[in-house]
Design a protein around this nucleic acid. Sequence first.
DNA 1: CTGAAAGCGCTTACAG
DNA 2: CTGAAAGCGCTTACAG
Lengths: 323, 323
Amino acid sequence: MAARAGVSRATVSRVVNGSATVTPEIRAAVLRAVDQLGYVPNSAARSLVTRRTGSIGLVVSEPPSRVFSDDPFFAVVARAVSQELEGADKQVVLLPASSPAGHARVERYVAGGHVDGVILLSMHGSDPLPAALARTDVPVVSHGRPITTVPLPYCDCDNVAGARSAVRHLLDRGRRRIAAIGGPPDMSAALDRMTGYREVLSGTDRRSLVAMGDFTRESGAAAMRQLLEDDPGLDAVFAANDLMAIGALHALRQAGRRVPDDVAVVGFDDIEAARYTDPPLTTVRQPVAEVARAVVRRLLGSEEERTAEPLILPTELIVRDSA
Amino acid sequence: MAARAGVSRATVSRVVNGSATVTPEIRAAVLRAVDQLGYVPNSAARSLVTRRTGSIGLVVSEPPSRVFSDDPFFAVVARAVSQELEGADKQVVLLPASSPAGHARVERYVAGGHVDGVILLSMHGSDPLPAALARTDVPVVSHGRPITTVPLPYCDCDNVAGARSAVRHLLDRGRRRIAAIGGPPDMSAALDRMTGYREVLSGTDRRSLVAMGDFTRESGAAAMRQLLEDDPGLDAVFAANDLMAIGALHALRQAGRRVPDDVAVVGFDDIEAARYTDPPLTTVRQPVAEVARAVVRRLLGSEEERTAEPLILPTELIVRDSA
DNA sequence: CTGAAAGCGCTTACAG
DNA sequence: CTGAAAGCGCTTACAG
């Protein structure tokens, strides 16, 4: 390659890496040779000396059922991250970490210098990975507030405020018995949304009534049946995510309750499917892609940017027909 | 590291890589040192000499709207691939290739030796990437039959037979005017499903009636409205995927048609959402994850395995209430 | 079974 | 502005 262009390897390297200090003629000659030979620098050799890999790890620590099923969350994040990374010419490598074995693999992988940074996705409270990763000198940013003892940079949406707006809306519509379907209690998003629900109700004379789900449709349907049994008189339900709200809609229909006439339903996320339920779902829109992009920017930014205050993006209540 | 264990670097390498020719005592000493020092081999240095990277590229050549929206297809594939790769201790790196710029990046990335193999996802007929990649000496296997001039190893499900079973079912239920909603005409899955539809109808005295969509819910709803306008007397519709079937259900409801009483609907894919529509959707189940796993096995297998006859997995008709 | 040495393909001070 | 040389951290024939 260097021979073909009649220059040294060093000069080829400089041209390929866009160094300014190269004579135009030489640069042209090198570029021509690169083109003719289809030369592409070997990435491993380059990484070895630059100590950078051009890859960012996306750690998905979630039981397959949720992240990889019908919830568009993972896909939306993966896409936004890839896209935002394009400008920096970096790729995302998927790091599944749902099992202890997966955790060990991810740790080894990161420690082995395979990635320039790590994005944590939907971590659970019990997860030992954040702490382990924080000990590495690889930058880590979490998508969503992690429940950890170690402080960790993160971006998130305002789950508490979002839930508040949903419950207030129900109150404004004159609903009196507002139940809730909660998510996994070891995830901050689920926790925060329940906090918002309780906060609003505690300001009134209404009692709270909660059934737990795990963010899946099926669990939403089961929780709804439970709720109906516990309090047949309920006239509204706030589900901590849309998938569970869809399950609730299903259970309500089977129980012969009309929505929103008998029972009003509000979800959280505003996934695409929310527009196609019957009736269309009133829900809290969460800017998943924007949070993901913010995470990437922090990850790529300086140490100071990363350790700055967590970025919390606002949510928006989307009123459709279910409430 | 080598000093700590009192052995040479070569021996450390042998122990770490599990070479059999190491004395138990020495192996133990090295392992102890590895543990104490938290030693992890540098991946770039290793790749440089072994010429392997431990990464597989997942090329997603799809407009964001589809793959990354609500269609669980991408997530299911990503998960199955990651999982199947775990045994081989390889990771998947996401390679978005929806734009020409994306294509160029992917080509460069693969040519740069970043990956040991490439999986192509839902390629479109016009896509130049398969041919470009086939020229590399990196193994390539496609998930889904690619529409290319160059022969390319692939695995798929039997889309034609699946569509046939759907349309036959409609016929068996006594439906007389069976319309269809097709997918993107440059994708083999869409093409093959329409072929199945036409094959069955051509064996009868029924005429075919087709409206085109692009695999999204919205396009399914639009196509359904079109069909209703073209032939108000239709009593069944076969949609080339579930998302479009869901859109069709929506349009039908808005048009005041009852499902299945007035119009029967059958989809294709059997995504999770199909069980939660009103009424639950009759559809053709497609083994997406199994195809993905088969793709990985071929990719990891020998040259002969890869170039063997394409593996075509069967589909299954799932009868629910919509038809 | 183990070690000394070469070499993987780059980048980057260091001279000139 | 360009080249010779060192060096990144491993693995792997090759001796012994």
